[in-house]
């Protein structure tokens, strides 16, 4: 059995998403634990889309990666889960790889199980630690428990909790190769994207995240948090309640069913700290909570708890930072 590992690149047609580099790092940890004769195998990246020249160059820089397999085809301009999964299953079909990994983003979570089922394999979701080449730790029950699970088959297909792995360095020099496109079992028709553009850092890789909850009362009040985030060079996030109430778009949601973040500084403003919210942020290095309810559960996980009306506290904090 080959010990090569395939990482699936995530991108938006213009840029490589940073989570890909964290996934390469997880692949590196698996490679280091492979004991198959001859030691660690190679790490390759699979890149699917159209006009991939620049993105392939970014992939080639990922440290530890030796080869980029590029499936560049006009029909994959907006690849569906079916399209990417078909390429993964084709790449893995011949026994050339022991593992395939993608970030546990909405992209990776859609394509990896799809590809696994095409290969009649059981995927393992959202790994946060590599124990052995076939054994992984992952959060279950919204992070209330950690499961150690061993795969009994090969290849092993995984999605990776990117915040749990430091990104691979970018001083590599992998070879770029074109690969033939495999035919997906069915196709869906892309209509459009409605994406909010933001100058701020991307939520899942930002060093600072300022999140607001129902306590913000409305969307306009989020301007306060945006200003604070800009001062700190951070991103803005939200609880589900704030998203459901329409204060901010869905992509701001942090939690069990939203995004997982682990910044150096997480500032929770007007958020109660439900377990489903904590699931997405409790691995942050430093948590600050601003809430006017003495009993708010968020205070139990916060490093710094400030019991105060947010409409007083946030402007005061802004003022202090601008001093």
């Amino acid at each position: 059995m080959s010990a090569n590992i395939l990482v699936i690149a995530e991108h938006d047609g213009a840029e490589l998403y940073p989570g890909t580099l964290n996934t390469v790092a997880a692949a590196g940890e698996i490679a280091a634990r492979h004991d198959g004769g001859g030691g660690a195998g190679e790490i390759h990246i699979l890149l699917v889309g159209e006009n991939l020249g620049e993105i392939a160059k970014s992939c080639a820089k990922a440290a530890g990666v030796t080869k980029i397999l590029v499936v560049d085809d006009a029909k994959f301009a907006h690849p569906g889960a079916e399209d990417v999964a078909a390429q993964i299953s084709a790449a893995l079909g011949g026994g050339a790889y022991s593992h395939a990994l993608a970030p546990a983003s909405t992209f990776g979570k859609a394509v990896i199980p799809y590809a696994a089922a095409l290969l009649d394999r059981q995927a393992i979701s959202d790994i946060s630690e590599v124990s052995e080449a076939d054994t992984f730790v992952r959060p279950i029950y919204a992070g209330n428990a950690m499961e150690t699970v061993k795969s009994l088959e090969s290849p092993v297909l995984l999605t990776v909790r990117t915040t749990a792995f430091e990104p691979a360095a970018q001083d590599g020099n992998a070879a770029v190769e074109n690969a033939a496109a495999a035919e997906p079992p069915v196709r869906v028709k892309f209509i459009e994207h409605a994406l909010s553009s933001s100058e701020r850092p991307e939520l899942t890789s930002a060093r600072v995240v300022v999140s607001g909850g129902r306590g913000m009362q409305n969307g306009e009040n989020f301007a306060m948090l945006e200003k604070l985030a800009d001062k700190l060079g951070g991103a803005v996030g939200a609880s589900r309640a704030a998203v459901d109430a329409g204060f901010v778009p869905n992509e701001y949601q942090v939690g069990q069913t939203g995004k997982v973040v682990a910044p150096d500084l997480y500032l929770a403003v007007g958020i109660s700290g439900a377990i489903q919210h904590l699931a997405g942020m409790k691995d942050s290095k430093c948590i600050v909570a601003i809430n006017n309810d003495e009993e708010a559960p968020i205070f139990q996980v916060a490093d710094y708890s400030w019991c105060e009306d947010l409409f007083t506290a946030v402007p005061a904090l802004q003022g202090e930072l601008e001093k």
């Binding site: 938006d12 069915v186 869906v188 028709k189 892309f190 869905n250 992509e251």
Partner: peptide, 12 residues
Amino acid sequence: EIDAGLEKLQIG
């Protein structure tokens, strides 16, 4: 609902 926002598709 995707990480970057919303995506509209037509599926059979």
